[in-house]
Design a protein around this nucleic acid. Structure first.
Lengths: 103, 103
DNA sequence: AGAGTATTTAGAAGATTGGCTAACTATCTA
DNA sequence: TAGATAGTTAGCCAATCTTCTAAATACTCT
């Protein structure tokens, strides 16, 4: 669980991966469509996608020749909420906790 | 700004650094007090503190022989909010980009 | 079955990270 | 001024990260 947070935050700490997540937030995309929007090679993008998948931030589904990637918005939201909760950020800790019961 | 998010998320992606932030969320502490709670060496803790300081997640103030570290809760909250906003998780992608104005 | 397209896996180079010990700087106290 | 204490900086090493090219796998179409 602690491990999961580490994996998720690490996945989010890379600008390319965040850009991928933002693209997927607009719409589902194939690996090729995603790769086409970056200067780095397709295998590198594929690797980033596997990191995001390992962190459960995206899901992948094969459609014929294509792999369709989809944002796992729930997990992203949960982890960020969890981190916020973890630190009870903000001077007013009780304001933070009211919304806390999510998972 | 994009760079700042990367630095902050990277700083948060290490379990030791998150533990330090949680400790500082309870109360301000000296470098020595923090170091004493970990199995790793004092120089290693000092390095983690410098990473957190570079990410503006903590501030440091000298008090005589001691360095007192303090959580910068505002920055932590802002960055996490920013990331949530960035992906506007769970919401319609339509509203997503409009609310960019935060910090 | 064979050719072509989409994507991943393998293996390697180069950069970065996180840990260590040793040495340095800064401050306090005698 | 010298010695002790607190913390950081420097230099090193092993592990991990990001990227690449080349090769393998998965699927479609003829």
């Amino acid at each position: 669980m602690e491990q999961a947070i580490t994996r998720t935050l690490h996945a989010l700490s890379d600008p390319t991966r965040r850009a991928i997540l933002q693209m997927l937030n607009e719409r589902d995309m194939t690996a090729g469509e995603i790769a086409a929007r970056f200067a780095i090679s397709a295998p590198s993008v594929s690797h980033h996608l596997s990191v995001l998948k390992a962190a459960d931030l995206v899901t992948a589904e094969r459609h014929g020749q294509h792999m369709i990637y989809r944002l796992n918005a729930t997990v992203l939201q949960e982890v960020l909420s969890l981190v916020m909760d973890l630190f009870k950020v903000g001077a007013d800790a009780d304001t933070q906790r009211k919304e806390g019961g999510h998972a």
